[in-house]
């Protein structure tokens, strides 16, 4: 009798212990879920703020004017609210950056993945990673004070010839603020990103494919270009897209070195403002909250987010389209 009561009391203690433990587990589960959900909340908050402030903006300015007018001067009188000059600046700097980063990054990735020895790879990869970690404001400094003077010097040789040939396209002198310098620096900045993601994609291609290609008598280069590159193209295209969205969203390099003057041009020798640079320019001033000038930066920000979202969606479909499964 006593024995069994001892046992039952032990049992109740165990059950209450288990109940309290289950309760604690549930509480932890909920806390962890909330932490995971904070990402969703961040996205919701970003979209909420951008759309909210942009709605105020579009109550005053028609979407048609915003998308088609070629004059962006919200801080002047009379103001102009056409986003096209900022988009042109963003597209131009991004294209210059890609012009540098895609060839460099791809060649570097092919070399590191297919040609380089393991030892070289072990040395190069951490260096690339370190360089990718340099703050962008420092890259802006490089663009303004080292690369642009260098380009000005280089440009001074063909300039007389070019400017007599096509005076509209080629100015006599390269301006201190231009899109070429920051574009090139931006390209150098995203090269490590593109090369490291592409290299990972290429190294994920099974060795058997390479062996098959070698057995058919192909050289390393032929194997790399005709077998490995197409097989990894899904991952490589993802790297390009990531590079594009990084270049589109890059702020400090262009804010420092491209000038802050909105300018509807696709000529990289001109100075221009990008969407991001405009947001920085407005934030540096002291604009009263709730004014239409203040809301322009949210409209610009919404354009930027939609731009990068578009990139991501295209990237998603590209990588699905070119996915090869082994």
């Amino acid at each position: 009798m006593t024995n069994s009561s001892v046992q039952s009391s032990k049992l109740t203690r165990l059950t209450t212990h288990k109940a309290s433990r289950d309760l604690r587990e549930l509480a932890i589960h909920i806390v962890l879920f909330l932490a995971g959900f904070s990402c969703v909340a961040t996205t919701i908050a970003i979209m909420y703020i951008l759309i909210l402030e942009s709605t105020y903006f579009f109550q005053h300015i028609s979407i048609v004017e915003f998308l088609t007018s070629s004059d962006w001067s919200p801080l002047f009188d009379p103001p102009g609210y056409g986003i096209l000059p900022l988009v042109a600046g963003t597209v131009t700097t991004t294209l210059v950056a890609l012009f540098v980063a895609v060839p460099l990054g791809t060649i570097a990735a092919i070399y590191l993945s297919e040609f380089a020895s393991a030892k070289l790879r072990e040395i190069v990869k951490p260096i690339l990673e370190l360089l990718a970690g340099i703050p962008t404001v420092v890259y802006g400094y490089f663009a303004l004070l080292f690369v642009t003077p260098l380009l000005q010097w280089l440009y001074s040789f063909p300039a007389p010839l070019l400017s007599t040939w096509l005076p509209n396209l080629f100015p006599l002198e390269l301006a201190g603020f231009n899109m070429l310098g920051p574009g090139i620096v931006m390209g150098l900045m995203i090269t490590p990103l593109i090369s490291s993601i592409s290299e990972d994609a290429m190294r994920a291609v099974p060795v058997s494919l390479r062996e098959g290609s070698f057995a058919m008598g192909a050289t390393r280069l032929q194997t790399a270009i005709k077998v490995v590159f197409p097989a990894a193209f899904s991952g490589i295209s993802a790297a390009y897209i990531l590079g594009i969205s990084r270049a589109v969203g890059e702020t400090m390099i262009v804010a420092v070195a491209a000038g802050l003057q909105p300018n509807l041009t696709f000529n990289p020798l001109d100075s221009a403002a990008t969407i991001t640079a405009y947001i920085v320019q407005v934030s540096l001033g002291d604009l009263p909250h709730g004014t239409i000038e203040y809301q322009t930066i949210f409209a610009a920000g919404l354009t930027l987010v939609l731009f990068t979202l578009l990139c991501n969606i295209i990237g998603y479909f590209l990588s699905r389209r070119f996915r090869e499964i082994y």
Partner: peptide, 28 residues
């Protein structure tokens, strides 16, 4: 949904976080 969000947030330009801070933390 959470996973897609994490990937997407990693690609959002940093200045957009600034706008979030300005509109949400600062104003609201």
């Amino acid at each position: 949904l959470i996973e897609i969000n994490v990937t997407n947030l990693a690609g959002v330009p940093s200045i957009v976080y600034g706008l979030l801070a300005l509109g949400f933390f600062n104003d609201l």
